[in-house]
Design a protein around this nucleic acid. Sequence first.
RNA 1: GUGGGUAUAGCGUAGCUGGUUAACGCGUCAGUUUGUGGCACUGAAGACCAUCGGUUCGAAUCCGAUUACCCACCCCA
Length: 429
Amino acid sequence: MKLLQRPKGTRDILPAECRSWQNLEKFLRDTANLYGFREIRVPTFEKTELFSRGVGETTDVVQKEMYTVTAGNSSFTLRPEGTAGTIRAILENGMLNDALPQRVYYILSCFRHENKQKDRYREFHQFGVEMIGSPMPSADAEIIAMANQILSQLGLINVSLHINSIGCPTCRKAYQEALRAYFAPVRECLCATCQERYEKNPLRLLDCKESSCKKLGLDAPIILDYLCDECKTHFATLKSHLDALGIAYEIDPKIVRGLDYYTKTVFEFVTQEENPDDSITICGGGRYDGLIAELGGHPTPALGFGLGLERLLTSLSKAGISMSDDFGCDLYLIPLGDDATQKALQLTASLRREGISAQTDVMGRGLRAQMKHANKVVARFTLVLGDDELKTGKATLKNMKSGEEIPLTLGDGFIKTFSDIEIADRLAL
RNA sequence: GUGGGUAUAGCGUAGCUGGUUAACGCGUCAGUUUGUGGCACUGAAGACCAUCGGUUCGAAUCCGAUUACCCACCCCA
């Protein structure tokens, strides 16, 4: 029985749901193309060190959520996110020697060994884009605009864009000191985890859900006041670009992001819920100007975002937006008897060769049951193939939607005739 | 890793304080007289009541452990 149990935190995406995935993926690919992004496909696993260096040794993702295996003398890890491997591939293949910026996108699954909870899986799917080579705020604006277009074009109204700048290493250091100075007097009053945060990552002190800690943090210094001139200008220009694009945003000094490689701009698209604690991030990203140098490339600015497909799909269905569609077949052939069955096999084969989706009985059902089944699989037309039809070569095509019956002759012109009728019917919709 | 909840046919559920063949809806399959679906009606198949152990004359029902899932913390997509 254990055999029939999938690993914790994984999901089966069944045929009914796959239509939604396919449609969503197609939409994402098309949008990526509009913005000039080309697809890149990278390995599912990489050398472990790529992630510990790229994502950051101190992050939770690296410290306790990686699926790591040792094979031979090497350690490999299933990708916990898409950026590190993508950047590795771009550097390894010398893509930065080509015209900049490089724009790539990917649809892949990521793996994190953490506890399953609402909208979190151990294998989850992500659509991501990376733009490499531009230090300009206009690049930030384009990336954000793209994510924004995706969400709004899908009809997702109740998401809001939160942006922040976490500065460059220089100004972030100054800010961390300021935060420590601010919290130092009340340090004893913080919750246990915040005590740790004080030491390890003061930025996260502002992210605590404990109401007592929230209160203590109300008047805390915010990073935007500590940005260096360059970062400050960058952020201001980005805001003006977003205004010009008519993209609404909210400045949220609390966005920190869990991956170490971010610099300057960070942003999240978050669902709006009645209870703010129920809101969930469906898309997150930002600038990571230091990552490429960290991985051994020439210092090159870059940025991107990741969009969680599971989360996007649940948000869509919550909003009553369906990505699925009716999927059936164009013609269902209903053979009666052995001779007719063989004839139906031949006919469906040639119909399919002409690009017409055709099905026929493979269950040995009777007429009535076959009609029911044709209805079940959403056949647009049915055609009964019995002794009479085989003998006379005359048959009746039935439009399952309208009930209309159209006489036609089997034989050489049959497929062409059917094709014309089918196309006319499709256009009439 | 910590705390709370749930666990009954493919899916969604009922089964009250333990008592003979575990119920219902959806779905599946077959029929409703002869070659035409969607509706309706009739019937059938399908469950060792998560697993293991305990209490008891007797457990889906009570107790314990295990596992899985859900929710919260942490963190994130």
